[in-house]
Amino acid sequence: MIHFDSVSKIYNGNCAALEDINLRIKAKEFISLAGPSGAGKSTLLKLLICEEKPTQGKVFLDKQNLSLVKPKDLPAIRRKIGMVFQDFRLLANRTIYENVAFAMEVVGGTNDEIKQDVPQVLDVVGLADKAEYFPNHLSGGEKQRVAIARALIHRPSVILADEPTGNLDLLNTWDIVKLLLKINELGTTIILATHNREVINNLGRRVITLDKGKLIRDEEKGRYIL
């Protein structure tokens, strides 16, 4: 479903953020993308949402070569992908419900669809009772769950999580990881980029390790080894 074919990424002439990455990811996999900070994890995810273009090589999503995507087709690609970040990126002046609804509004969801779908995803992430709260009144783990709900609203085939637990304490971290596992079980591919050793070692799923832009290890049921 996702295929990196000899992909390199060099930011404005400096050293390579990614170097000759070859990688295939099947639908419904749960991937941990490991590596110290600066290894190129975020860059790899950015290539998938077309925020960056590869300097060399090709990235395929569902057989579509992302280098050939025209600007006007970008929105369609981004709706296939749910993205979650370390800093949540919620809108502070909107309630939890509105934050999720906003993602539907701006892609033309009708009011009826919004009324139907938003409570559903809030239920999936366990926040149905806090729909009218503002983000500032939630814990970090809850904020991240809102972000995940928002990422889920378009029923994406893949969710990219870039250090989603980076700002969270241990308890909340496990909350989020369990939520991602649950979403994966419901049929969504997950790519979890993290440098958290605990998380990766306890997951027991496929681990792809990057270091200094190179793919140095790719193991089923892997561990964080550097």
Binding site: P75, R89, L91, V107
Partner: peptide, 17 residues
């Protein structure tokens, strides 16, 4: 700007933005 970045993130069309 926050709204715009979220819009882009969730795939709002350019004309919508």
């Amino acid at each position: 700007k926050d709204e715009i970045s979220v819009m882009r993130l969730v795939g709002a069309g350019n004309w919508y933005i």
